[in-house]
Structure formats: structure tokens, C-alpha cells
């Protein structure tokens, strides 16, 4: 959890310092992709707390989910139907699911895991 926050902070600082921006047309896709990858990161934290972390699964989920979510948003735009809602609902609810599990692990697990985190 703390690592994720630190990572996001670092990324945000780098992002603000770098002069690069992207086209405004892609904001929707990027937003949905951010949500998807955020969910992956939460899943990763949870797996780490449960000692089940698998790098391959994490990396493939991180990029795969983001790309799929952005692709859904794009297809939805083409079809004139907001398909990205599917991504928002799925990843949104999973995000809170993961967070709930992280909280429980954090609060009720024994010391060793807590220090590990």
C-alpha cells in the first residue's frame, strides 16, 4: 500500500516535471486504462500480503487490463455506445474488493506479514 503510494507520487512528480503531454482525444482511454492498472496494482499488493505474488501474472494483468480497458473504450466510441462502462464497473468494484481484502489482511494478520508489507 505504502509502496504503491510512493510509486504514484514518484510517477506524478516525474510526470509533472516532464514536458510531454498527449492528445486530448485519448483522455477517455487513458483514464479507463489508469483505472484498470490501478486495480492490478491493488491486486498485486493483496497478493503480496497473501504471499502469492507472481510477477508474470502481475505484469500481464497490469498491461493486459489497461490495454483491454482502453480498447473497450475505443470500440465503444466507434460503435456509439459507452462500452467503457463495463471496464469502469468491473475494475471499480474489483478495486474496492481488493482494498477491502488488503484492509483485513493489514488489520488482522500476525506481525511478520505486517512488517513485510
Amino acid at each position: 500500500m505504502v509502496y504503491a503510494l510512493i510509486g504514484i507520487l514518484i510517477g506524478a512528480i516525474i510526470g509533472f516535471l516532464l514536458p510531454y503531454t498527449y492528445n486530448t482525444a485519448y483522455t477517455l482511454y487513458i483514464s479507463v486504462a489508469i483505472l484498470a492498472s490501478l486495480d492490478s496494482v491493488f491486486g498485486g499488493i493483496r497478493a503480496n500480503l497473501e504471499n502469492k505474488f507472481n510477477t508474470k501474472i502481475f505484469i500481464s494483468g497490469f498491461f493486459g487490463n489497461a490495454i483491454l480497458a482502453a480498447f473497450l473504450a475505443y470500440i465503444g466510441d466507434r460503435l456509439g455506445f459507452p462500452l467503457y462502462y463495463a471496464a469502469i464497473f468491473t475494475f471499480g468494484s474489483r478495486l474496492f474488493d481488493n482494498f477491502a481484502k488488503i484492509r483485513r489482511l493489514w488489520l488482522y494478520k500476525e506481525k511478520p506479514i505486517k512488517t513485510k508489507e
Binding site: 510509486g7 506524478a12 516525474i14 486504462a33
Partner: peptide, 15 residues
């Protein structure tokens, strides 16, 4: 890995 991936997210959020 979590730090790196969150950094990527942070990058996008910032931009």
C-alpha cells in the same frame, strides 16, 4: 514491481 507500476500510473495521472 509495485513501485514501478504505480510510478507508471502516477505518470499518466500527472500528464
Amino acid at each position: 514491481i509495485i513501485i514501478i507500476s504505480s510510478a507508471i500510473i502516477g505518470l499518466f495521472i500527472a500528464s
